[in-house]
Structures are given as C-alpha cells and as structure tokens.
Design a protein around this nucleic acid. Structure first.
Lengths: 147, 147
DNA sequence: CTCTCTGCAAAGCATTTGCACATTG
DNA sequence: CAATGTGCAAATGCTTTGCAGAGAG
C-alpha cells in the first residue's frame, strides 16, 4: 500500500490523516499478510508506543470501509448454523445482514483444483458473496460516496 | 435432516445420542436456516427447558465435525487484516490455521452473476477454501475417522 | 476554533471451559 | 459400571464504546 496514495485517499474524505493512522498504514505495508489487530498494534508501537488497540480497530474499520484493507472473517456478529441438506453458499446483505442460500455450480471444482495445487488434503470451500439486497440497495446510498 | 439417519450416524461414533442432542437435531430440522445458537437454544427449550447454551455449542461442534451442520462464519479466532494489493482469496488449514493467499480466476464473474440474479447491488465475494496443509495432512489422521 | 481523533478502561458478546453430578450404552 | 454428557457459572478473547482531553485542518 502506498501511504501517499492512501494519504490522498483519506484527504478526500472526512477522515483526518493522523500519525497513528499513518503508522497503521505503514504497519500494513510492512510485510507479511494476515496480520491480527494485535500484531498490527505491536508494529505500530515500535514507532508510536502509546497507541491503543481501540485505535487500531477504529482505523482498520475505516480502511475497510474505504476499501483499503481486506478483512478475513466476514462474519455476522454470531455464527449461523444450518442442517446440511445440500452444499450451498451464501449471499449476505452487508446492510441488513440478511443471508440467502445460493448454489454456485462449478465452484467446487475450482476450489478442489486450487487446494490440490497447493497440496492440501480434505479440501472444501465456502463462498460468501456480499452486496446490498434489493431493499437496502434501493434505499441506501452507493458504496463509495462519502456519506 | 433425518434424525433417525443421524441417530445411526452418531451411533457409529463414540458420541451418545442424548435427548438434548436429539432435540437440537430436531431444532435444526424445524425450518428456517441460518439459526444462531441462541435461536436453537430457544427452540430446544420449548421441549427441554433445562438445556444450557454450553450444550448447544458443544453439540453443534460435534455435528459440524461429523459434517451434519454447515456453519456460516468460518473464522480464525481473531480477524486478519491485510492491505488490498490485488483481490485474492484464502486457503485455510483447519488444523494449524495457516492462511495462504490464492487467486481464483473466473470466480468474480460467477459471483457477480449470482448476485445480479438476486438483484443485489455492490456485489463482491470472498472464497475460503479449507483443508489440511501438506504438513498437517501428512501427520494427521483423515477427516472422517472416528477418534 | 471546531470537529475529529485518541487513550484508557470498562462494557459487550459470542463462545469455551472446569467441575460435580446425571445419563447412556 | 465406566465413559460420556450436562448444567451452571465463571472465564476467555476479540471487539466496541463512552468519555474527557489532545490534535488536525
């Protein structure tokens, strides 16, 4: 991630570029992926010892909203369970959290191929498609407008 | 889910079929998908008032292990964050929780098509492929062995 | 100056766990 | 009976939030 680019990105929004945020961007940039909030905190504290976890979470949330970070673990607040009738995937409204079952023909083959390519065994997959359902899409404002 | 079938399924394992478990299976069977643990608890308590949430979670975990329930929200215990360089997906070892970035060519088109078919807007998708990495697959025992 | 951000510490929530007792096979 | 399951309640771990002071533009 190019911090100056993001810099510009932030400036186009109501968000301010603070030194904490810059440090968090640098931490994300600093190699390795799949960082936990805790790891990011450690990195950030190397240069800015006083930073708190709350700030890390708040900032990551903004960056996600701006599409600058990808989060692994798109979860409803609580897990959902259902009997396995037939393998299916999920379409999730990011607005109202409505969850719809969908089929994704051919997906399993793709996933198997990828898993096998990496020498994984017991391969399975789950696809989550996110978006805005008809109701929320109608009412709401488009994704990238600044409020 | 056919409770008698599961019954048989459970009997083939070290797990016992208790009345709590039977009730949970019935709750899962009882219509509606994407049930939260809390919802399942409510349903179960209609016939077995004394059941606790702990039992629900313990049972759901067994059922997941046996492949009888599908869980939405396959999360590492903590979320993972990474800078968005290029859209990619994840290959997760269910054993050691190692996470690998993978490309899934063509997937986005599939997801877009599905989303559009359901009249969703701002469609995006994320695929998680699970399995056992070479190291864990070698050491470990196969998925469906009892014990 | 005003509005946004931050640190801190407490709260929130879903989930897990230890333990003594109850149940299953 | 021996092994497994259960309820209860406390603990855990990640994440969110209220607040009062600090900082950005």
């Amino acid at each position: 991630m190019d911090v100056r680019g993001v810099d510009a990105g932030l400036l186009q929004t109501r968000y301010r570029l603070t030194k904490q945020r810059a440090a968090i961007l640098r931490a994300l940039d600093g190699g390795g992926s799949h960082l936990s909030a805790e790891t990011i905190l450690e990195r950030v504290r190397e240069e800015l010892p006083g930073v708190s976890l709350g700030t890390i979470y708040r900032t990551l949330d903004i960056l996600r909203e701006l599409g600058l970070v990808q989060v692994f673990s798109y979860a409803a607040s609580a897990a959902r369970f259902e009997a396995v009738i037939e393998k299916h995937h999920h379409l999730l409204c990011v607005e109202c959290r409505q969850l719809v079952n969908v089929a994704a023909p051919g997906l399993n083959e793709i996933a198997q191929a990828i898993g096998t390519m990496h020498h994984f065994g017991d391969v399975d997959c789950s696809l989550t498609i996110t978006g805005r359902c008809p109701a929320c899409f109608g009412n709401g404002k488009p994704k990238s407008s600044n409020n």
